Computed example of a mutant assay.
Amino acid sequence: MSHLFEEKNNNYLLNYKIIEAAETSQIMNTYSRDDSLWTDLEGSEISYTPASGSDYVIYEYWFMRTQYDSGAINVRCKLVYSDDDGSSWSVWGNNTNTVFGSIMPEVQIRSLTNLRLCLNSWGNTPKKLKVQGNVFTSSAVSLLHKLETFYDSSGLTGDRYYKPFVTCYSVRN
């Protein structure tokens, strides 16, 4: 992983932090009706301490999702956090769950996806944040961070990746 930390000293953007993941791919096919099976989305984890006096923290996760087979493509996401450096994780709650995609297998989706959440600031203590996901329907299998079918000057190739990245920054009213 590469890591870039930059602090902006204005009234709106403070303690900007970005982490870009390595070249990777991830098959998302975990499905459970009782919400018991969730998988960490690669490249979504960040440790962050809000800037002093900030009101909100903006968490953003950028990733690529593509259809892996002939089934539907969808990814259900939820934000989780840790106050003990990753020993245990809790669901953030408060409208931080979402679904991207379609349950229709006829829909061919290749999309750069941005999950952006505005969280209440939690003071000057560090938290680890990450996104966990699963598929919304049992017939869905999604491929993350890699284009399975990409045409370049040499023809069809399957070696094109998108490096997912996560950012956090603090803002004031």
Rank of each mutant, 00 (worst) to 15 (best):
E6I: 12
N9W: 09
N10E: 11
N11P: 03
N15G: 12
K17L: 12
I18Y: 03
I18T: 12
I19Q: 04
E20P: 00
A21V: 02
A22D: 13
E23A: 07
T24C: 15
T24E: 09
S25R: 09
S25D: 15
I27Y: 11
I27T: 13
M28Q: 07
M28P: 00
N29D: 15
T30R: 08
R33S: 06
R33N: 10
S36P: 02
L37I: 03
L37F: 04
T39A: 13
T39R: 06
T39S: 09
D40R: 03
L41I: 10
E42D: 13
G43L: 10
G43W: 00
G43Y: 01
S44R: 02
S44D: 08
S44P: 04
I46G: 00
S47I: 06
S47V: 10
S47N: 14
Y48E: 08
Y48L: 03
P50Q: 15
P50H: 05
G53I: 15
G53R: 05
D55A: 14
D55L: 06
D55H: 07
Y56T: 06
Y56I: 02
Y59T: 04
Y59L: 05
Y59F: 12
Y61N: 02
W62I: 04
M64G: 00
M64I: 05
T66E: 10
T66M: 11
Q67D: 08
Q67W: 02
Y68R: 05
Y68L: 10
S70V: 06
V75Y: 00
R76L: 04
C77W: 00
C77F: 06
L79H: 02
Y81G: 02
D83Q: 11
D85N: 14
S88H: 11
W89Y: 08
S90T: 14
S90H: 13
S90I: 12
V91Q: 06
N95A: 14
T98Y: 05
V99M: 10
F100K: 07
G101Y: 03
S102T: 11
I103L: 07
M104D: 15
M104F: 13
P105G: 04
Q108L: 08
Q108I: 05
R110D: 15
L112H: 07
L112F: 09
L115A: 02
L117D: 01
L117V: 11
C118T: 12
C118S: 11
N120V: 01
N124R: 12
T125N: 03
P126R: 04
P126K: 10
K127F: 04
K128S: 04
L129A: 06
V131A: 03
Q132M: 10
F136A: 14
S138M: 09
S138Q: 13
L143I: 11
L144A: 02
T149C: 04
L156Y: 14
T157I: 13
Y162N: 00
K163E: 13
K163A: 10
P164V: 02
T167K: 07
C168M: 14
S170H: 02
